[in-house]
Amino acid sequence: MRLSFYQRNADKIRIFLFILIMFAITSPIILSYFWLILRSFSVDMKGFIPTQLTVKNWRFLWSEIKGYPNIWKTTLNTAFVAIMVMLFEVFMTSMGGYALSRFDFPGRTSMMKFILVLHAFPSVSLMVAIYYVLKYLNLLDNLWGIILLKASLETPWATWVMKGFYDGIPWEMEWAGLVDGYSRFQVWRKVILPLVKPGVAVTAVFAFLSGWSEFIFINTFIFSQEFWTLSKYVKATIGDFRFADYGLLSAVGVFYALPTIILFFFVSKYMIKLTIGGVKG
C-alpha cells in the first residue's frame, strides 16, 4: 500500500493549516497594533510603509503640548484611579465572596440572582441617575467619584467570581483551622485567603485594567484638565474641535496600551498556571 503525499504528511499539514487559519483570524488585531506602533514613529504612512521616520510624535513625553495637560500628571491620575479601584474591589470581594460562599444568611440566593441581573444591566443607562448622585455627594469633577463609581459597579460581579474560588476550598480546611485554635476571622486570614490568592490576583488584575481603561465616566463627569486620565487624553487627540493629529494619536495610543501589555506579560504566565478556583493538595 502506498500512502499519498497528503497521507504521509497529514499531521504536519493539519498543523500548518491550523496556524494559517489562526493567523487569518487574529491578523486584523495584530496588524492594527503593528500599524499603530509604526505610525507613532513616522511622519506619514503609505499603507504599511512609513514615508519618513521621526520621534516628533512622542514629543508629548518631554514637552508640554498646547491645549493638553501634562502627560505625567495624566498618567499619574490614570494609575491613581486604576490602583484605587483595584484596592477597593479586592478588599470588598475577598470578604464578600467568602460571605456568599460560606454563610447561609437569609436572602443569599436571591442576592446572587440579583447580582447576575445587575451585571447584565448596561451601566451607561444609569448615567443621568449617577450624575445626580455624584452632584449630591459633591463628587463631580473629582477622581474619587470615578473610583467609587467604578468599584461599586464592578464589585457585585467580582464578588460572584471570588465566591467561586472560595467554593473550591473544602470546609475541612476551615474546620482544621478552628480546631487548631483560631477564630473564624483568623482562619479566613491565615488559611483560606492564601488559598484563594489566584482569585484575588485575577480580581486585582481585572479591576486594575478596568480602572486604567475607563473612559465613559471620565469623559462625562470630569471637566478639568488637571483630572484627565489617558483615555480622555487619547480622545482629545482625535479632537472635536481641532484637527486630528494622527501621529500624536498613535504615539499616545501606544503609550496608553504599554502598561497593559507589560502587565499581561507578567501575569499571564502566573494565571495560566492556576486553574480557576482550584487548590492543589
Binding site: 475541612e172 483560631y182 477564630s183 492564601p194 488559598l195 490568592k197
Partner: peptide, 20 residues
Amino acid sequence: VPPKYREIGMVFQNYALYPH
C-alpha cells in the same frame, strides 16, 4: 464552647493539611 477552647486535636478523613 467554640472549638478553640475545647483542647481537642483532630485528624480529618482527607487530612485537611494546609497546602500553602
